[in-house]
């Protein structure tokens, strides 16, 4: 049920500091747990999150096994021009999700 919740203001004034919030659905299985039978549960985590604005990278994070399920990111940027934020999550077992949001800057 991979799905993301994105919160980007639809409008901003030039020079405003805006907050961007993203929530991605993921189990973030650490790889350190065992089943009742003793078998290790293989690691299944998101390893990287990036945000591009109009093609330029503005935020990147590496994720590790200690990060909780359904990782939530909140970060700030300065509104300079209208455009599109593109978000990408990459992880184990070929996990890859994208989302985008537009902003109009006056």
């Amino acid at each position: 049920m991979a799905s993301a919740l994105i919160n980007v203001p639809a409008k901003a004034k030039r020079g405003d500091i805006i907050e961007i919030k993203t929530l991605m659905s993921h189990i973030m299985e650490s790889g350190y747990r065992h089943k009742a039978s003793g078998e290790a549960v293989p690691r299944d985590i998101i390893t990287s999150f990036t945000c591009h604005f109009n093609g330029a990278e503005i935020f990147r994070a590496d994720l590790f096994p200690a990060i909780a399920a359904n990782p939530f990111f909140s970060f700030f940027t300065t509104a300079t021009e209208s455009g599109k934020f593109e978000f990408e999550w990459i992880g184990d077992k070929g996990f890859s999700e994208t989302a985008s949001a537009s902003i109009s800057v006056e």
Partner: peptide, 14 residues
């Protein structure tokens, strides 16, 4: 309180 930070909303969306 914040629908975009509440992980429960992922299930609501689904």
């Amino acid at each position: 309180d914040d629908d975009t930070a509440n992980p429960g909303m992922l299930w609501v969306l689904n």
